[in-house]
Amino acid sequence: MQTALRTSLPETELASRASFAPHARVAREERQEERRVQTTGLPLSIRGLRKSFGDNEVLRGIDLHIPAGQFVAIVGKSGCGKSTLLRLIAGLEKIDAGSIGFGQDVQPEDIRVMFQEPRLLPWARVLANVEVGLGRDRASKDAHARAEKALTEVGLADKRDQWPSVLSGGQKQRVALGRALVSRPRVLAFDEPLGALDALTRISMQRLLERVWRDQGFTAILVTHDVSEAVALADRVLVIEEGRIAHDVVVSAARPRQRGSAELAGLEGSILSHLLSADDRT
């Protein structure tokens, strides 16, 4: 069973590459050139990455290159290892085998994570919560000013003196985004950041994410279970199945993207059918 799966995988990978049109590949390379000029992001190269929890092998050899400033979405069924990949990139778990490189030495402030839960300190006011994001620069003189600037970027400047408990779910998540942005990270990893929000708040948060990514040019890695969110936001969608990258799909639609356009819907449909067909195989 196991060996049969392994030999069958490269074939499906090839098939998927072919079905997602060669012209998309060209478009992606052009886009990369265009972004590389203005980006502050870091490139990511992952080689032979493996991770197990006990007997359970979650990641079974991931090879991946992400150019600086790219917006990559990672989708897959729950338990496929997508969150583990993100936690490894963010340095929250230890790597079993393989490597993750950023092309240069990185400071902790260069890489930030945003989670599904806002994880705000309930006993600190909004501004102080954003200041937490400055890391070692917390004590610096311009900490206040920088935190206020980040709060303005996420549109919550008027809530600076509130307690987190009085904010709505979407507002809390925006404070968490401000906290992640305040240190001007070069890689920003999102672990289903909008999973707990209602549909409308989610759409406005997606717009906000896209805007700050375009303004700041960090490399964005978004783990999500929502394929339509992935194709709406990302330059590239990775489908992970059983601890490996099963499909690598380029989304070449121009920005700003029209939600529900035929192009995005078609892409969403084909990624979903891949995810579902994996279901049928097992």
């Binding site: 963010a90 929250l92 902790p108 402030e109 930030r112 994570v113 989670f115 839960e117 994880r119 300190l121 937490v132 994001g133 890391g135 070692r136 906290r179």
Partner: peptide, 10 residues
Amino acid sequence: QLIEMGRIYG
């Protein structure tokens, strides 16, 4: 989760 957050933010 808050403790993890604190550690991430150094």
